[in-house]
Design a protein around this nucleic acid. Structure first.
Lengths: 211, 211, 211, 211
DNA sequence: GATGAATGAGCATTCATTCAT
DNA sequence: TATGAATGAATGCTCATTCAT
């Protein structure tokens, strides 16, 4: 797939499509829905992207690659810190990213019909996360602040898995968020899941956390 | 909704439907797909269940209620054990259940169009899990084997979230399962995620684990 | 078509079918509707009558032939009267018959898919009416009470046409029936249309009516 | 309902639909029937009209409203004449209209599933006819050409009822039309029913007719 | 580039009927 | 004689896509 620059109209389509697909699912979102909400002609999705499925591909590319890029930028900003600070920052960053694009990441792993190389794109992102975590754990072990060295793919699994579960299971998790309302569920849940994951991860690492 | 006994033919339909829906999603799975794979006439789904959506309802009932029941039975069997043994067993049980019905639980929280009382059914299941975990943690704290008392909803979140993530992200997790093949990915992944979750949970509980 | 004796169960089916078909139309009335309302198995209509359409045939036969028979009986009873009395009676009789079986006669001429010999049956009935009217008119002309001899097919056309129009166009005709309610529309309309047709017919016949 | 201009293709569909529905009934006429006869794609009915039922609505609108308009225009043209001439003209006009759109008016009052406001449209038409008849009768009574004043709703009932009966009962009425063939039944029947209704109506009005 | 009319394949569902019992 | 499960054809409709402009 050639990387593509999108015009404003195309970006508009992708934004609308993302929102609708995240809300209703890929199949339940019709080209007509997207186009009417985006204020453009029904034929334009085929015209611009070739097909609905190919549009989906561009949508993934549009989001996942941006996530990867922004993650790389973020990683730079914490390069100099201590391992425990870096770990805290990276957890907060990943969780924050998932919440920010909650209506996107949620279905990335669900919708199957998407071209494989898109999964590769996402896989790349996960692999970058794993190697960053790896570096941080090694650093913490060497500096002595971490006494245990769990597998970084398991740490990432816990982070992403728990976060997505919380995003997807509002009706469960809100039971334990007494002050959550319809409007602020996501921000309240984000706080709680970050706290949980920090505790969990530092416990695994054998790091005594004072939050 | 009245609880229903299913004939073998109906069970066959539900099994096929479950697999296809889990693979392709609800909307992308046509009744023609299901019926042709189940070797029955297209009209039978409407005939047996009323409609495709109602079939979905029966499918949920068929799986979630059975999960609840079998969980209750399981909980009885570990009633007498020590807290650490109970915790280990319950983690293994929940993870095993999710893997066993992997192509079901994965989409329960995803598909929107499902009747609410079904979500309630699943919520019930989660609440039962949480209260069991609660009991075990209290018991372990009292007996002194656990030195830390994390929130049980967070423990459950980690267990289910991580497990579903692993089930759904084969192409990521298999990178860290060197001996995994196409055929045995799930069983290998199950072992690894169980090990991860036991470590993680016991670390959170401040329990020294010797596995 | 062989004339058939119907069992009670078959008569039950025909009665239910007639009512439903008259209310909802032939196509909109399903075999399942009829059978469930008649308290019998879905397969019975095919079993008893061969098919839904053939059942329709029996239904016509069942009603139209009875109408013919009862008309013949009625005709006997007025054989001895004066022409003007006979005319009055026959108009009242025909209108009454149409109202009595309003939900049947109304659609006889509408539903096309019915076997032709059934139309013949109805045609027979009309022809009998015409010849009776013919006799009465002749008699009245001879006796001098009628001064004009309109075509009897036109008289019958007026009688049946006006009556069916009134039956079918409740929302129009009730505008001119101030005391009509939902419940008694048909009986009120029947009175008014009888009065109209008596006046009309006697006017045509040049007979001075004192009702 | 917004009044709509139809394209030629839409008019083609409505014409075909009208004919088929009048012949076979609404339910028995499938959109596939209509589209294949109209030489267009099956999806076009939904595309143009929204649904089969909505198409029906447009069909009513297309015919009934035009009938109303053309009736109003016609009424203007006879404004200046004598009562007996007006009565003759209006009878001929109404009968002619019913014959012209014979395959439409026949089922207007029959099909149940049609939107109510459409029935209102037809009712409007009937009410306009009644009030015109009313005026003519009054005028004739005043000028002394009519000696009797029957109810105009009953006159209209006779006119429409008899005409529709003749249209619908070809196999009966053709018995009295010796020169009628398959091809010219309608025009022959129209002549005879007009003659009948003129005679009938003038008889009711006490007007001596010399046709 | 951009439109909107038009297409044909596919959808879930309902139907009258048949078949095994 | 009677059942109800099972069938296959038909239904109205929606869909992503194409085509003429």
């Amino acid at each position: 797939m050639v990387k593509k620059k999108f015009t404003d109209k195309q970006k508009k389509i992708l934004d609308v499509a993302e929102e609708l697909i995240a809300t209703k699912g890929f199949d339940a979102t019709s080209v007509r829905d997207i186009c009417s909400k985006a204020g453009i002609n029904v034929a334009m999705i085929s015209y611009y992207f070739g097909s609905k499925e190919k549009m989906m591909t561009f949508l993934y590319q549009y989001r996942v690659q941006r996530s990867k890029e922004s993650f790389s930028e973020f990683a730079e900003t914490i390069k100099e810190g201590k391992a425990e600070m870096q770990m805290k920052e990276i957890i907060n960053y990943i969780v924050g990213l998932l919440f920010k694009y909650n209506y996107f990441h949620g279905f990335v792993t669900q919708e199957i019909r998407v071209n494989d190389f898109i999964k590769d794109d996402l896989l790349d992102f996960y692999k970058i996360c794993v190697s960053r975590l790896e570096e941080i754990i090694k650093k913490g072990i060497i500096s002595g602040v971490f006494t245990n060295a769990p597998k970084s793919e398991d740490i990432l699994t816990n982070i992403i898995g728990s976060t997505l579960f919380v995003i997807r299971n509002k009706n469960f998790y809100e039971l334990y968020l007494p002050s959550a309302t319809e409007a602020n569920y996501l921000s309240e849940a984000e706080k709680k899941v970050k706290s949980n994951l920090l505790q969990t991860t530092f416990a695994l690492l054998g790091f005594e956390l004072y939050v």
